[in-house]
Computed example of a mutant assay.
Amino acid sequence: MNNANKTEQTSYIGMWVTKDGYIRHELLPNGRYDEARGKRQSAYQGFYAIHGDHIDYVDDTGFTADGDFQGGVLYHAGMILYREE
Results as ranks from 00 to 15, higher is better:
1 M>V: 11
2 N>I: 01
2 N>D: 14
3 N>Y: 11
4 A>I: 11
5 N>H: 11
5 N>E: 14
6 K>S: 11
7 T>D: 12
7 T>Y: 13
8 E>K: 12
8 E>A: 12
8 E>D: 13
9 Q>F: 00
9 Q>R: 14
11 S>I: 07
12 Y>D: 04
12 Y>C: 06
13 I>D: 06
13 I>A: 08
13 I>W: 09
14 G>K: 01
15 M>D: 13
15 M>T: 15
15 M>A: 14
16 W>V: 01
17 V>T: 13
19 K>H: 10
19 K>I: 11
21 G>W: 00
23 I>C: 09
24 R>F: 05
25 H>F: 15
27 L>G: 00
27 L>T: 06
28 L>C: 09
28 L>S: 08
29 P>W: 01
29 P>K: 06
29 P>A: 03
29 P>N: 02
30 N>Q: 05
31 G>V: 03
31 G>H: 07
32 R>E: 09
32 R>D: 08
33 Y>C: 02
33 Y>W: 02
34 D>Q: 13
34 D>G: 09
35 E>Y: 05
36 A>H: 05
36 A>I: 01
36 A>Q: 05
36 A>K: 03
36 A>L: 05
37 R>Y: 15
37 R>H: 14
37 R>V: 15
38 G>P: 04
38 G>E: 00
39 K>L: 11
41 Q>I: 12
41 Q>L: 14
43 A>L: 10
43 A>Y: 11
44 Y>N: 15
44 Y>T: 12
45 Q>E: 15
45 Q>S: 13
45 Q>L: 13
46 G>T: 01
46 G>C: 02
46 G>K: 03
47 F>E: 14
47 F>Q: 13
47 F>G: 13
47 F>V: 13
48 Y>H: 04
49 A>E: 15
50 I>D: 01
50 I>W: 03
51 H>L: 12
52 G>R: 06
54 H>P: 04
55 I>E: 00
55 I>L: 04
55 I>H: 04
55 I>S: 01
55 I>F: 02
56 D>E: 09
57 Y>S: 07
57 Y>W: 14
58 V>N: 06
59 D>V: 01
61 T>P: 04
61 T>H: 13
62 G>H: 05
62 G>D: 02
62 G>S: 04
65 A>C: 07
65 A>M: 07
66 D>F: 12
66 D>R: 09
66 D>K: 10
67 G>A: 00
67 G>H: 00
68 D>R: 13
69 F>H: 01
71 G>T: 00
72 G>R: 01
73 V>M: 07
73 V>S: 03
73 V>W: 04
73 V>T: 05
74 L>T: 04
76 H>V: 10
76 H>A: 07
76 H>Q: 10
76 H>K: 05
77 A>E: 12
77 A>T: 13
78 G>V: 02
78 G>W: 02
79 M>V: 08
79 M>I: 08
80 I>H: 03
81 L>E: 06
81 L>G: 00
81 L>M: 08
81 L>V: 01
82 Y>H: 10
83 R>L: 05
84 E>A: 14
85 E>H: 15
85 E>D: 13
